[in-house]
Amino acid sequence: MKKIQILGTGCAKCKTLMANTEESVKALGIEATIEKVEKIQDIMKFGVMTTPALVVDGVVKSAGKVLSPEDIKKFL
């Protein structure tokens, strides 16, 4: 069971990353929880300077990029 978090204050790019992540999780057929982290105080705890960011099991995998579903698969 993987824990995926999407960091972002709710801009359009963050929503796209969320949708792409859901798509790749479905495509891979793995079990995972996807959670949005929208409070800026919580986002800063991950040490990122750009959003949206993708976090898998507590590790920041990418920041400031809208990854495609293909790219996301590599991190899952």
Binding site: G8, T9, C11, K13, C14, I40, I43, M44, V48, M49, T50, T51, P52, G64
Partner: peptide
């Protein structure tokens, strides 16, 4: 430097 206005706050804090 690549910049998107939605990252203004995390950048500010990071700096």
């Amino acid at each position: 430097t690549p910049f998107c206005s939605c990252s203004a706050v995390p950048l500010f804090i990071g700096f």
